[in-house]
């Protein structure tokens, strides 16, 4: 068996080892590179930045499962830093039953604590209610009919912030963080029917589809995957896990491209040899 045949039939455990090394190296070696800002991320930042300080109220959604937190939590954190630094009040909600309310509670409270924000006055976590289509539509008329209480069971009327929020008309912006198709419903149900601006931070695998909504003007800005999170962190001047993760992602992308190239070279050389052998 020739060298190229061996490369063509390389044991996948060698590939796993290479991926493992590519993940570990940036943890020990500083590999900083300049991160450029895409127009979509800048559009989202500028839309949020243009909201009036102190008086605005923004709905932040945590439509996330735990598996995607590496990508989505940095963008949610960056968004909350941006909002709280402008004294914008935040209402959080989730359409994911498996851990969604816990993620929203933990992330929001941690960021809010840095700005000395008070629960009930500056931010409220509505939590989860089943059947997201009903929830999204129902909140348009009356949030209380869908969420009589917040995530911890407190009646909404007893929370000062919620005395100003009754439906989508009382919100200035919706910042969706999502790792699944629910982001489509925030556009088709909420943005399209109630006219409230919606921006989104989604996983990299979901981002290509969302370009259609950005192009049509239905989505006000987009963050795609960890790169999007890194971009927003840089825009709000809070470099964190998104920026740190880019070095690892850079190496992994280069490795995969190199593997594709080597795999193709080995394949074509082996193919040519076989044809010559047959001739």
């Amino acid at each position: 068996m020739s060298l190229w045949d061996r490369i063509d039939k390389l044991d996948r455990r060698w590939i796993f080892l290479l991926v493992g090394i590519a993940v570990i190296i940036p943890l020990f070696v500083n590999m900083e590179a300049e991160i450029s800002i895409t127009p979509e991320a800048r559009q989202l930042f500028e839309a949020v930045d243009a909201l009036p300080n102190d008086s605005s109220i923004v709905l932040v959604t945590f439509d996330l499962y735990a598996f995607s937190l590496a990508e989505t939590e940095p963008m949610a954190r960056a968004a909350l830093h941006h909002l709280f630094s402008k004294n914008i009040r935040v209402v959080t909600v989730t359409t994911i039953p498996l851990g969604g309310p816990s993620i929203a509670e933990r992330v929001t409270r941690e960021v809010a604590a840095e700005y000395g924000k008070t629960y009930g006055v500056d931010f409220v976590n509505l939590g989860y209610k089943p059947n997201y289509v009903s929830v999204l539509r129902g909140m348009g008329t009356d949030i209380r009919s869908i969420y009589p209480t917040d995530n911890s069971g407190t009646v909404l009327d007893s929370l000062p912030l919620m005395n100003e929020v009754f439906n989508y008309d009382d919100l200035d912006f919706i910042f969706v963080t999502a790792d699944n198709g629910i982001v489509d419903f925030w556009i088709s149900i909420v943005q399209a029917q109630y006219g409230i601006p919606v921006g989104a931070g989604v996983t990299a695998v979901m981002a290509p589809k969302q370009y259609a909504y950005v192009g049509s003007g239905q989505m006000t800005g987009l963050l795609g995957g960890m790169k999007g999170a890194a971009e927003y962190e840089l825009l709000v001047e809070r470099a964190d896990l998104g920026v740190k993760g880019m070095a690892i992602q850079s190496l992994i992308h280069f490795l995969i491209i190199a593997l594709i190239a080597v795999g193709n070279i080995a394949y074509f050389i082996s193919l040519r040899r076989k044809r010559r052998g047959q001739a």
Partner: peptide
């Protein structure tokens, strides 16, 4: 859940090498 999702990187690399 994070571990399960992260394992995709290993399989994507392997699949890219063989199938792409």
């Amino acid at each position: 859940q994070g571990t399960m999702f992260a394992m995709l990187a290993f399989y994507i690399a392997s699949a890219a090498y063989r199938a792409f």
